[in-house]
Design a protein around this nucleic acid. Structure first.
Lengths: 152, 152
DNA sequence: ATCTCTGCAAACCTTTTGCATAGCT
DNA sequence: AGCTATGCAAAAGGTTTGCAGAGAT
């Protein structure tokens, strides 16, 4: 069994436990949705996931997919990125370390970034104001090297 | 003429110049909308601005308000904060220094924050990856001292 | 005349909800 | 029975667009 399949299995277990804790159960639909979610790399929209799921099992309704996606977020398996264009993108968060995003405003490429110094200062800034930090979102927007090169 | 009115006048001038540069003109509707925008402090939604504008001139359509709000953002007078709840909030950005936001997830209070060290590292992180940074958004979410106190 | 500008209403688009049915336990 | 779960279709909610008329130059 490959490493990646291994991670997926574990993630699925985590999801099943989350369901149990909330008196919910793993259903065939949820199983297909979660597996599709786990197989899909990178950042994708709910709509894209709908397409992928329907490719496997077209009888699954979009409402179920949206509902399951919400469960995935609640369970901590998924995280959503909101880049202010109306719709959300999702990505895996189980077995992935926290990171922020650097986004090319030209080609829309998204790079995951992480900086210890920033994370530390965020905590400090919040606590100086008496806040207990629970989470944060940071998006850096710029022009990536490739796009800067072609200078369309 | 008070200081605040002074700033407003200048801001309005900046807007008028922006309009001119784009072959647009200052109309009575835009004037009312812009002035209402400039008078309104803090973070507010498009809907809220609509209400305020309509209070002064009920005949102004919401489409015009949305269109003008977009012009305000393009002109650099307004900035939008997108906190992933579907709708955007706006705030002044003319005569205001750049800042990020610390948001209480309990009472929704928004505090403006600024940290030199973070700003500097953002630039560095981006440039290490070959990006030319154009802007960024950072939202810190946490519990404010007041809300932590009452522990509802 | 030829522009932009406006208000109205309708369209949009992603996400959510209501509801009746189906499936567990 | 009494739950949760599902699919469908409709609703929601914020924002945008089409359009025909009005206004400006």
């Amino acid at each position: 069994m490959s490493f990646i399949t291994d991670i997926m299995k574990t993630a699925e277990q985590v999801f099943i436990e989350f369901l149990k804790e909330n008196n919910l159960s793993m259903t065939p639909q949820r199983k297909i949705i979660v597996e599709t979610f786990l197989e899909t790399e990178g950042h994708f929209s709910a709509e894209r996931l709908c397409g992928l799921v329907k490719g496997k099992a077209s009888e699954i309704g979009q409402a179920t997919i949206y509902r399951t996606l919400k469960l995935l977020v609640d369970s901590g398996l998924a995280e959503s990125i909101e880049v202010g264009d109306g719709s959300a993108l999702y990505e895996h968060s189980y077995g992935h370390d926290h990171h922020d995003h650097l986004i090319c405003v030209h080609c829309n490429r998204k790079i995951e970034i992480y900086d210890d110094a920033i994370e530390k200062r965020q905590e400090e800034v919040a606590s100086e104001l008496g806040f207990k930090l629970t989470r944060h979102r940071m998006y850096l927007f710029g022009i990536c090297p490739e796009c800067a090169g072609q200078e369309s």
